[in-house]
Amino acid sequence: MWLLNSSVGRKVVMSLSGVFLILFLLFHLAMNITAVFSAEAYNMICELLGSNWYALLGTAVLAGGFGVHMVMALWLTWQNLQARGSSRYAVSDRPKNVSWSSQNMFVIGLVVCGFLLLHFAQFWYHMMFAELIGYHEVEVGGKMIGTTDGASFINYYFSHLWVVIAYLIWYVALWLHLTHGLWSALQTVGLSNRIWINRWKVITYVVATLICGGFGFVTLFFYIKSLLS
């Protein structure tokens, strides 16, 4: 199968799984923005998804895409280290036009994964997972919160400064990852040329800033709200 047996094929898999994850981020952002306008509307989405079969199916597909992206990252990075050879340059200098993030995608990806675990522990574990093992309420911060009461989770976690700072660092790492990832993915699947490379780069920065700025806005909104109440 050329998608696994050739370098370009493996990169196509990497690119398509990455673009899929970006589409999910846009969907996730749309949900979060809802919470700013109405806690009820947000909880409605949480109930709608909950642990229903279609939400589980969606989560499974998402986890699959994420798994493919990670396995490919490990595989490609390992191969690239081999191709670089055993002896390293004594002096190396990053040329202009080469972004720092483009040369550190694997490390930035690891940072993103690290914060993702925190996010899972705080939200997914208490919401979808708790429901799956038969709970409808969980104790968070000394209070019982319903597993589909997403708004209460947001209010609780984003009232803690360390959580807010951790999430903001997460968004910066994600932004760095996306600013190289999106245009690079489109270049890999061949949708680029001398003119479009610059257009894709602009689109990439707009999308990355929209996603990470949007998440950052929601996080800060709830932190400030917690300070005022």
């Binding site: 370098s7 690239n80 191709a83 036009n97 890999t188 061949g190």
Partner: peptide, 28 residues
């Protein structure tokens, strides 16, 4: 040889200024 990750270091260092738009064409 390794897998290209579009860092553009090649293009920046190429003595003949060959563009990575050719890489997109090859991928295509």
């Amino acid at each position: 040889f390794g897998n290209c990750t579009n860092t553009r270091a090649c293009e920046a260092e190429c003595p003949k200024g060959v563009s990575i738009s050719h890489i997109a064409r090859l991928n295509r």
